[in-house]
Design a protein around this nucleic acid. Structure first.
Lengths: 222, 222
DNA sequence: GGACGTATCAAACAAATGTTTGAAACGAAC
DNA sequence: GTTCGTTTCAAACATTTGTTTGATACGTCC
């Protein structure tokens, strides 16, 4: 029963934290909604703050557990790998499967980081980011400034994260067709195509300046 | 003196709210840091909540005041207009000029919206968004699904907002070269070039499928 | 100088907060 | 049945919270 109670508190607290933030949620409400005594939080977690840190860890685990690690075969072309990466990221981030609060909690943690953020980045964000860098490498000529590589990566994850972080704004701007814009598959296609072209636009400006014929390796993209 | 005192409170409160959030900041601390009596908040603003709503309004005004409205001449090609739009947006959002808290406060308000968000979107975000849609229209063939148009816009603002919303993550990932990645001019160039190519990649797949020669209007971009 | 609207101040208020306490209930082991 | 470690419970604790109060100071107009 121990395991069940503490995890139940974790779930209830996580949802409330994600919706209203750490300070706006009281220990009393967590316990009331979880159906446990008020001293349960301190009994199982030691303090409200520790409980919060645990909800962030739980959220990170949950987000990566929902989506199997990005795996591709050696024969997959780079474009296919990028599509898989974007699909996985969108799945983690825009998909509203139960529970839906972990992604939201992490977004808030990113925008105004607390002590929980550093560990989250180190353990969960960095590996994913490195995977993206590896994919991008394959699009670029060997001696490529790291600055460019990083910015390409940020351009891609920026597009994905927008649909979670700015969903409130997006819904207000898009009105009734907002749900259609969140459709996972077509959104994956859009961001992938946009990014593939964008990568080429960054990787090949020299050729265009030299007035090469532009019809060279475009087929690589599709 | 009236005007000065209330605005001073607004500034102090805005900075604290942006750093730590509404609930974590106490009226006592605001007043102490502002050098005014504790009852000043209720005297000038009626309540802590009203003060917060005013800080959001102030932040929105400040962010758009720092950057003159996007203006272009009729002769400017679309690519140039897009570059100006991106430059303005990055200027508002990633530039750390004094005061630097308004953008941060707005980002937090977007990720977990309160009552202040709706008005902010209506009065400040929507006009900017509409301007971007107008620019994008010129890249696309006339009968273009609104869904595509919107997603293009979101791809662009998503790239820009990343550098503010996810700055904590970005700094941890990029390490010592994070400041270089935030350089306004080169970042504008990157996002503009990436997006121009991305727009073409989205706008032209039909032509490619029809096996048209791809060398048509590429000069339009540069 | 007196009157009046504005602004500032220290003190106090009631409510809510996270946490602690000590006892009671429970369940398995002997 | 007794014992012992774990879990639950209601009550209370000391702080902190936003807000209110009533008095005092300030400046201006008559």
């Amino acid at each position: 029963m121990h395991e069940k109670v503490s995890e139940h508190i974790l779930q209830v607290a996580g949802q409330l934290f994600a919706e209203r933030g750490y300070r706006a949620v009281t220990v009393r409400e967590i316990c009331r909604r979880a159906g446990v005594n008020i001293s349960a939080v301190n009994y199982y977690f030691g303090s409200k703050e520790t409980l919060y840190l645990e909800t962030v860890r739980f959220a990170a685990r949950q987000c990566t557990r929902n989506v199997p690690i990005v795996t591709w075969t050696e024969t997959d072309p780079p474009a296919s790998r990028l599509r898989q990466f974007i699909h996985g990221m969108l799945h983690r981030v825009v998909r509203d499967e139960e529970p839906s609060w972990p992604a939201q909690l992490l977004m808030v943690e990113i925008v105004r980081p607390t002590r929980a953020c550093q560990r989250f980045v180190r353990e969960f964000v960095r590996p994913n980011f490195q995977a993206l860098l590896d994919i991008l490498q394959q699009f670029l000529p060997r001696p490529c400034p790291e600055k460019t590589l990083y910015r390409l990566a940020f351009s891609i994850v920026g597009q994905c994260l927008y649909y979670r972080m700015c969903r409130s704004v997006m819904s207000l701007l898009a009105g009734p067709q907002a749900p259609a814009l969140l459709d996972l598959e077509s959104l994956t296609e859009h961001i992938t195509n946009f990014s593939l072209a964008g990568i080429q636009g960054i990787a090949r400006p020299l050729r265009r300046r030299r007035r090469y014929a532009p019809a060279t390796t475009r087929g690589e993209l599709s």
